[in-house]
Amino acid sequence: MDRVPVLKIGDTLLVSIQVDMEDQTALQLQDDLAERIVATGCHGVIIDITALDIVDSFVGRTLSSIAAISKVLDADTVVVGMRPAVAITLVELGLSLQGIRTALNVERGMELLARGRGDGLPLPFDSDEDELTATP
């Protein structure tokens, strides 16, 4: 069975999924990630799904639960690099990946995490100007 590597970069864990996600792989990733967050004490998780052609309902749900688990362990999760075709399919299926934050690529995902930590707010996307001036 394929295992997805979890890399630690500073205060962030980076998971780049390069293989087809089977149900077992997804569950294994969920276990690994929970353990690594506790072991490293990281406060951010970035899951890169650029290489994923297919995201089915199970993988979608696993992503949601990974985000929820990370939240409990005080780490924010950002899913990055979703392909247009995957996004369209998920919308058509009516899956909106509740509770998951998204970004276009890893770099933007990092920015999002940094911003979230800097302000101590989960979502800095409000039109409040004070918090915006704090961002570069």
Binding site: M82, A87, L90, V91, R101, T102, L104, N105, G109
Partner: peptide, 10 residues
Amino acid sequence: KTVVAARLMG
């Protein structure tokens, strides 16, 4: 739908 799909992509 378009807006939701764009959000999924970040």
